[in-house]
């Protein structure tokens, strides 16, 4: 069986994919909420205004969440999944919890007009375990593209589609 190949989300994905509350996995007013945000940048360093970012993460206890409700959030149930379109300057943000567990990262999917297939990456919490086999195998400059920078109320994570400091994207074995 031949898997269906990917195709770009194109310029009109706002019609079908983003939805109200998609980026609020946790209400921003929750005292434990953090902001995960950054920009999506193209090969010239310009913001990508028509990208779509999805995150999928463990809860603060490190457990994988099996709760539905991401599309119609009730404000109480943490589903571990969110989606948002970038703004005119390429910026995006999520309100969420920091993931816990042995390998604390946000699994990130990137879509955009001009991007023919989705990209996978990981946004690790700051100061990850230096013995982590995946991170340890990367040259330091490339490894740095996967690690969030701490901010007063959250984490900063830019996604560079191309160029110097291009983000490490993943292919799964």
């Amino acid at each position: 069986m031949i898997p269906a190949p990917g195709q770009t989300v194109g310029p009109f994905f706002h019609l079908g994919l983003p939805y109200a509350g998609g980026n609020e996995l946790v209400p921003p007013a929750d005292p434990a909420a953090i902001r995960l945000g950054g920009r999506v940048l193209d090969g010239d360093g310009h913001g990508v205004p028509d990208a779509l970012i999805e995150i999928w993460q463990a809860g603060p206890d490190g457990k994988v969440v099996r709760e539905p409700g991401s599309l119609r959030r009730d404000g109480w149930t943490f589903t571990g999944w969110g989606r948002t379109a970038t703004e005119a300057d390429g910026s995006y943000w999520f309100s969420t919890y920091a993931p816990g567990g042995p390998v604390p990262f946000f699994a990130v999917t990137v879509f955009a007009r001009g991007l023919l297939d989705r990209l996978f990456t990981r946004a690790y919490l700051p100061d990850p375990d230096p013995a982590d086999p995946f991170l340890a195998a990367l040259p330091p400059a490339r490894r740095a593209t996967l690690i969030c920078a701490p901010q007063p109320r959250g984490l900063h994570f830019d996604i560079r589609l191309q160029g110097d400091d291009e983000t490490v994207f993943l292919a799964y074995r």
Binding site: V48, V64, R66, G80, W81, L115, L161, Q162
Partner: peptide, 28 residues
């Protein structure tokens, strides 16, 4: 042209949440 990664993707073994997909239901 300016929106494709120039570097090859890095092979990774899926870990943690990557072994699962988000759940959706009739609430959604």
């Amino acid at each position: 042209v300016l929106r494709h990664p120039a570097q090859e993707p890095v092979l990774a073994d899926p870990e943690g949440v990557e072994l699962w997909a988000p759940a959706f239901g009739h609430r959604d």
